[in-house]
Amino acid sequence: MSRPRVVVLARPGAGRDRTEAAVQEAGAALVAVLDPCSVGVDALQSAAPDVVLVVLDPVIESALGSFDAVLADPALRVMFDDADVASKRDGWEAARWMRHLAAKLHGHADVLPVAPDPDAPQGLQQEMEALALQVAAMPSLKPAPLQAPDQGQGAVVISAGVGGPDAVRQILGGLPQDFSRAVLLHQRVAGGQYDKLVRQMQRATTLTVSLGQPGEVLVHGQVYVLPDLVDVQQSGDSLVLVATDGAARFAGLRAADTAMLLLSGADTALVDVALSLRLGGALVYGQAPDNCFDPATSKLLVARGGEARSLAEISRLLLQRWPA
């Protein structure tokens, strides 16, 4: 099998250097490293890549507009990373990222070993032991539902964290412009840079993406990035974003009209919420561990009776529930 041809789009710096090294260690052919601030689309096209890995920072985001037509080519795989995060990745975290990158570049599922290995790095053993303890410590699900009564409206909730942006882009990219539900993106962001996340996600979808604000009435076919301390509740016939003193728990959503997707790095505290919504008829899926950088929450969901599906299958099931 031939090695995938990869072009890295990034500005000079530690993030770019570490990304170059990760691509090479992952066994791909690094055919070009381009700064989109100083080269044009022709340079990217002439490299004839199979994959483009974009290392994002605010300057790169501004420069990507002229590359949009090429990056939108369905024959080209486009991946994104954050320059600041990439520059700080080292040790075990860098090794895990390289493994995840190799899985995505080569299209296989070998992201993390499925069980602790005595010869594995200490960080992996600790991670797997911690996951086992989390599963064992989870309380039994109480029959009383957390969600609102079966009245009012629902929404599509997407929760993600470390390793989640690419998965979120894939889900959003599969939704039509006239999608008939609002989408709430619960994405953990370092430093609370949610405006940056809004710009990144707008590139992935034809839906309007905005930063959700307390008091805002949800509109079908729009994506709302939820900052910290913002939740949702029913107000008459509408869903309204509200300020809260804790994490969002989505208790105001009508379960039978809701989907909750727990993607890579999602908050483990949402497993109870998701399973309770599922009891009321919601679509609830975790991201399948294949090509999932951080599958801990999906594994907890499955361990407690939920399901994990591929991103392609999740997209299909969403459109089956809410056809255009």
Rank of each mutant, 00 (worst) to 15 (best):
A10L: 03
R11Y: 05
T19N: 11
G27C: 07
A28V: 01
L30W: 01
L30Y: 03
G40E: 07
D42M: 09
A48Y: 07
V52A: 04
L56D: 01
D57C: 08
P58R: 10
E61N: 08
S62W: 05
A63F: 00
G65R: 03
S66C: 04
D68Y: 03
D68Q: 14
A75H: 04
R77E: 09
R77I: 09
M79H: 05
D81R: 15
D84M: 12
A86K: 11
S87L: 08
W92G: 08
A95N: 14
M98Q: 14
H100D: 13
L101F: 05
A102G: 09
L105T: 02
H106V: 00
G107V: 00
G107K: 01
V111Y: 01
P118H: 08
Q126W: 07
M128A: 11
M128H: 14
E129V: 13
A130I: 03
L133E: 15
V135M: 12
V135P: 03
K142E: 14
K142Q: 14
L146D: 13
D150G: 00
D150T: 07
G152C: 06
G154C: 08
I158Y: 03
S159R: 02
G164V: 09
P165R: 10
G174H: 05
D178Y: 02
F179Y: 15
R181C: 01
R181G: 01
V183A: 06
L185T: 00
H186C: 00
L197R: 07
Q200C: 12
T206S: 13
G212A: 06
E216H: 10
V217P: 00
G221T: 09
P227F: 08
L229Y: 12
D231M: 05
V232D: 08
G236T: 10
D237A: 11
L239Y: 04
L241N: 03
T244G: 08
G246N: 09
A248S: 04
A248L: 06
D257L: 05
M260H: 04
M260F: 05
M260I: 15
A269Q: 15
L270A: 13
L275S: 03
L277G: 10
G280E: 08
V284A: 03
Q287F: 04
P289S: 11
N291C: 15
C292V: 05
V302R: 01
A308E: 01
A312R: 13
S315I: 13
L319R: 12
L319A: 03
W322F: 07
P323A: 11
